[in-house]
């Protein structure tokens, strides 16, 4: 961050966050690389999944304690759920286990695409809002669904750039512009971002935050990519706030048209 600007924080549910980069905690080469990546990206919020734990398997490092001891806030997800019913119970377990009502609601339709199921997601979101959750639903880049989820009380929406783990970047920038233009809750780009330029574009389109996992964790140098993503977030956000110039079909000279010298019609050379 440049020193002169005011703090550019954002709010999701009851939380005020400084960092606009949310990182996942999976698929890093090592725990240390993950911790270094979180630091390099300047992340505050880190996603975790909720899974059955074998009571006989005691010992081993506890990632949750590792993260919270370092001051990170954990955003639980309902990854792996295919029905609203499973997602609601997973959410309740997450709230009990982590003591947080903030939730990334993820209800997928099938294993192959991992695309979100819009019907189950909307059903689960409405139920979870009633139960007092701050719901962040993972959805397709669908402006209509985003609006409906906001209407049932979600504190933000998480449209996907492209399928999870694909790294294809924002496939339909116009949909994101539509979502952003109509939403009065934060828009967090989730899934499918592949590199720093994707992140910059997300912010230039007016999105409030990004969530990445594979793009960082599976980069050749995750820590360096995390740093790049942090820079891109600031760059894209600043560019959006600065207000870009209009696009033109033809060139327009930057140098003044007046005061040009005239070489006349003398023979050349």
């Amino acid at each position: 961050m440049s020193g002169s600007e005011v703090q550019d924080t954002w709010r999701v549910g009851s939380r005020e966050l400084r960092s606009r980069v949310i990182l996942g905690s999976a698929r890093y080469p090592s725990t240390q690389v993950m911790l270094d990546s979180l630091e390099a990206a300047g992340a505050q919020l880190v996603t975790m999944a909720i899974r059955r734990a074998d009571p006989r398997a005691t010992g081993g490092e506890n990632l949750y304690e590792l993260l919270t001891d370092r001051g990170y806030q954990v955003l639980p997800n309902t990854a792996g759920c295919f029905t609203a019913r499973d997602a609601v119970l997973t959410a309740e377990l997450a709230r009990e286990a982590l003591g947080t009502s903030l939730l990334k609601l993820e209800v997928i339709a099938d294993e192959e695409t991992l695309l979100p199921d819009p019907v189950e997601t909307l059903t689960a979101a409405a139920e979870l809002v009633q139960r007092g959750f701050d719901v962040l639903p993972y959805i397709n880049d669908d402006p209509v669904l985003a609006q409906k989820l906001e209407d049932v009380g979600c504190v933000g929406v998480m449209p996907l750039a492209a399928p999870i783990g694909s790294g294809l970047g924002i496939r339909n920038p116009h949909n994101f512009e539509l979502i952003v233009s109509r939403a009065s809750v934060p828009v967090i780009v989730d899934a499918g971002l592949g590199t720093a330029s994707d992140v910059a574009l997300a912010f230039e389109l007016g999105c409030d935050a990004v969530l990445l996992n594979t793009a960082v964790a599976q980069a050749r140098d995750p820590v360096r990519m995390a740093r790049a993503v942090g820079h891109a977030a600031i760059g894209g956000r600043e560019a959006m706030l600065a207000g870009r110039m209009p696009k033109r079909f033809y060139a327009e000279p930057s140098s003044p048209a007046e005061g040009l010298i005239g070489a006349g019609n003398a023979a050349w050379p």
């Binding site: 996942g24 909720i50 990632l63 949750y64």
Partner: peptide
């Protein structure tokens, strides 16, 4: 299918055919 809060653990005896789930947060995106 219902959460048993931590405060209820020691007073909740399991009954035949109970379906119990014990979960923890793990790495995820």
């Amino acid at each position: 299918g219902e959460v048993v809060t931590r405060g209820e653990w020691s007073s909740t005896a399991v009954e035949p055919d109970d379906k119990l789930e014990i979960v923890r947060p793990i790495q995820g995106g």
